[in-house]
Design a protein around this nucleic acid. Structure first.
Lengths: 232, 232
DNA sequence: TCAAAAGTGTTCAGCGTACACCCATGT
DNA sequence: ACATGGGTGTACGCTGAACACTTTTGA
């Protein structure tokens, strides 16, 4: 096939995806890591990854890898960066496209988790990781910090119903700093992207706190009106 | 080699880089495009690209492709995004990692430009491009807009010495809106990252305008003092 | 009754924004 | 003398940030 002349002169390379999986539990941002089940570095902590198949889009490969580990589909998943140093993987020349995912830990499939020897670690104290995976985690954290200020991605880490205190704790975990309760509430409520439900959460307080949910329609109206989602 | 068992079960793929090359001339932001010299889509306008070699880092591949077309090294070059839909290139399964470059058009190697049938186009009126290249250009524009507000990348598009008016015109071109002269000057000068030279540019005005240069050392001090580069 | 979390407004300073005129010089 | 681009300061409104007390209720 003449059409492929120029292409077939070049060498093909392995292409993989690796997933940085974020969760939120006990007021801490956490990472889901697995133990590598094959060499090189068998038994070491690693991001969950897999090779991209010939008939599979990059995004689909990332979804597949994520579903294999968590059992979850319809998860927030965003491409982070492509890592391609020749010596990044001692097992061979592998280009890895990193994705980060935000999941609600309550919805997790525990079986899959066990199967892949996976475990949650707080983002500020996770074990050493193989290859350039620490670099990936670092970049993912920075991306999440930036993104959470200008797009409503944080809600992906909470269950559908949440209290304002839980939401604040989440932002505090992502940005690793305390926020002022009154200012936080004023700001998030002023954007009018939440709907208050007719229910209270009595688990965390005797008095009970109103439950809210993120309202996609309100968010769309906000954007249509020329405003933006902004947290400070 | 047992170490590669898991890897050799997977198929390798072609990996390419494509470069979105920005320049600034006649108060307009411009794109350097080439005519494809081989099938598929021979003769169509395209971003400059090339395959990643087996012994070559991703970033190095992008630099090589950029140098081949422009003759320039030491250019601002940043990875943009990895494109990997199975049907993105009718010539075969190719993962493309897009990079964008900011170059000073005055330093351009005209010969290389001719050799690859390359041509500059204003970013608001460029011809149709092959594959998913329009999507790449769009993403690069957005990245440049965002980045230029929080990091001093714009200077990469100007020659070393420039007037404040030229700098303002550049920001206006990137953001496609008029800026207030007094506010613009106040803001850029208040950060103290420019050094005023003892020379004036008399090309664009009779009176002459002071020439400035971006001062890396001043910029580093700004960061050390906990401040940030911010343009609004 | 007490401990623990929920909920609620105001004040102030600093910044972003709008805005108009004089200057220098080459033709 | 005039046309062209260069250069400069102020006033105001809005927003971000700091800050403390009352309420509810289960134990």
């Amino acid at each position: 096939m003449a059409i492929l002349d120029k292409y077939t002169n070049s060498k093909k390379l392995y292409v993989a995806v690796d997933c940085i999986i974020f969760g939120f539990e006990d007021d801490k941002l956490r990472l889901l890591l697995t133990k590598r089940m094959f060499d090189p570095c068998k038994g070491c902590w690693s991001l969950m990854g897999g090779f991209v198949q010939e008939d599979e889009n990059l995004d689909d490969a990332a979804s597949r890898v994520l579903e294999r580990l968590t059992g979850l589909t319809d998860v927030y998943l965003e491409q982070l960066y492509a890592y391609g140093d020749t010596d990044r993987d001692p097992g061979g020349r592998v280009i890895s496209v990193a994705y980060y995912a935000l999941i609600c830990t309550q919805k997790l499939d525990k079986d899959a988790e066990d199967k892949y020897l996976a475990k949650w670690f707080p983002v500020d104290t996770y074990p050493s990781l193989v290859f350039d995976h620490p670099e990936m985690v670092d970049k993912a954290m920075k991306r999440l910090r930036r993104k959470s200020l200008i797009q409503p991605v944080g809600f992906e880490l909470l269950s559908e119903k949440f209290t304002l205190t839980q939401l604040q704790k989440l932002y505090e975990a992502i940005h690793q700093r305390k926020l002022d309760k009154r200012n936080f509430r004023k700001q998030i409520l002023s954007m009018d992207v939440l709907t208050r439900l007719e229910e209270k959460d009595k688990v965390n307080s005797k008095r009970g706190a109103w439950l809210y949910r993120f309202d996609k329609e309100k968010y769309d109206s906000l954007l249509e009106s020329g405003e933006h989602f902004v947290m400070k």
